[in-house]
Design a protein around this nucleic acid. Structure first.
Lengths: 220, 220
DNA sequence: GGGATTATTATACGCTTGAACAACTACGCC
DNA sequence: GGCGTAGTTGTTCAAGCGTATAATAATCCC
């Protein structure tokens, strides 16, 4: 418990406080920022509100971030990272990797309403704020290249045409499908049965590729 | 010109102004609100900024809308309406209607960065604001039902299974694909060649349905 | 343990916000 | 044509914003 309460007695005094390592405090502040955005949009993320959520006072934020803009930018990096990091680290056979990529993007923790809230809040400023636009482009291209790579491997493993044109066209369509289903699931998850979106995605993508995707090897 | 300039001479006086019909003024104020949101997100849509954009003073907004919340809600209705109205009024044979639906949703004026800005700004508040959530649900269900109807007609015209389960599954996938491609196009339209998204969507949806969609009848 | 360092608190400042209100002017009406 | 109504303006207010800065408490180091 970092807050051992106020001094025993006597006149006005300051709050007791905990002195945290820099990395941890920055992490906590960014996490608090994301909480505020998820609950009240970018407008809900005021310096004071973030401080309350993090259990500190407003001034401290300026000690770690030169401006409110900066903490928002770093928060956006974290959001994009969480949306893409797991999908970019799939492993196994081409079939397994492609399947994992699909499943990961349509299940927790990537697909939930909080993710969508955060994503949409930032997206609405991407077209206006060049700094956010740069962060966005970086993360997005990585995501699509990862998908394109998975497709190339998958097609090649079947001896099918894995040329750039074919991969690009397929990646555009599949990326669109995944984005759209992710969106539907986040927006109205209660309208879909458990794993309905995942199976819809899998069978749709099989139809788009014209090939079945082998089920995962049974885990003993 | 509604602003014949200030009174000829003499001391300080008020701005001359134009007295507009209620419907027109409300429309102008909502349009100004959308401009503000598109340019600066919801945070850019302050009462004063909206007033400047509309060429009036801030107080007037409260004359037409009981609160800022209310004007934002009505603005959201307009946004959703524009995203769905054209698609819900397609006509012709089942093939033509399905094709039009696809094309409309992936070309101007539905698909552009301004639409996305507006949409994302509001979406980020849908999960937080019950009033906006209601407006959203209303518009969204209409859109998906329209698509489901188009699919049912299309399948029936081929003598294929047009049962509710099949239509629902197809509608989920196609709706996802359209949403996702719309999003990609709005976010990074410059990455795609002219009508690349439309042809991607058409061929992908043909693959999903397993049927070609007849090209539109040549317009004489 | 005690002094130097600095993370953290607390307070203040100037500005913008949504809202409220009184003054004013355009327009319908007779 | 002048009066009444109400659409419109201009001003004000309290609250909240991001930022700046001085005071203070926790930790490091010896």
């Amino acid at each position: 418990m970092p807050h051992p309460a106020r001094p025993a007695a006597g006149g006005m005094s300051r709050r007791s406080f905990h002195r945290a390592p820099e990395a941890e405090r920055r992490h906590d502040l960014i996490e608090a920022t994301l909480d505020c955005i998820a609950e009240g949009g970018l407008q809900g993320a005021t310096v004071r509100q973030i401080a309350i959520k993090a259990g500190v006072t407003a001034g401290l934020i300026r000690h770690y971030f030169v401006s409110k803009e900066q903490i928002l930018q770093e928060a956006y990096r974290v959001v994009i990272g969480r949306l893409t990091e797991k999908a970019e680290r799939v492993a196994g056979t081409p079939d397994e990797r492609l399947r994992s990529f699909i499943v990961i993007n349509l299940t927790e923790p990537v697909a939930n309403s909080r993710s969508l809230s955060l994503w949409a809040s930032f997206i609405s400023r991407v077209s206006v704020d060049p700094a956010l636009a740069a962060i966005h482009r970086e993360g997005y291209l990585g995501f699509r290249n990862a998908l394109e790579g998975l497709l190339a491997d998958f097609l090649a493993s079947r001896g099918l045409d894995a040329g750039p044109a074919r991969c690009r066209a397929l990646a555009i369509a599949i990326n669109g499908l995944l984005d759209g289903l992710w969106l539907e699931g986040c927006l109205a998850g209660e309208l879909f049965e458990e794993s309905e979106l995942v199976s819809t995605a899998l069978s749709s993508i099989e139809a788009l590729i014209g090939q079945p995707i082998a089920p995962p090897a049974p885990t003993k």
